[in-house]
Amino acid sequence: MSIQSEDVLKIAHLARLGIEEGQVESYASDLSNIMKLVEQMNEVDTSGIEPMAHPLDQSQRLRADVVSETNQREELQKNAPEIEDGLFLVPRVID
């Protein structure tokens, strides 16, 4: 499977990544090579092997349901470009 220029543009848009026009071709070629590698791996016979959801063969440790965080709004909002009434302000979005 080879990746076309329009695939690169679509993926970039979905990931909100800006790509210079001149670079689209080389991304398409790099991604195609990755896909080739995956196809190569697909040739290994894995029938009868249970797929893993995670490279570590372990299960999730769970946390007790306890509130351990305190209000640190002031500290946490120091990074924010704009705040008002405790809210983070972002460019207007309308659904």
Binding site: E84, D85, L87, F88, L89, V90, P91, R92, I94
Partner: peptide, 14 residues
């Protein structure tokens, strides 16, 4: 997201 007018911006409460 709070779309009331915050200087033309959207307020976010997480």
């Amino acid at each position: 997201s709070l779309h009331e007018d915050y200087q033309g911006m959207t307020g976010v409460d997480l």
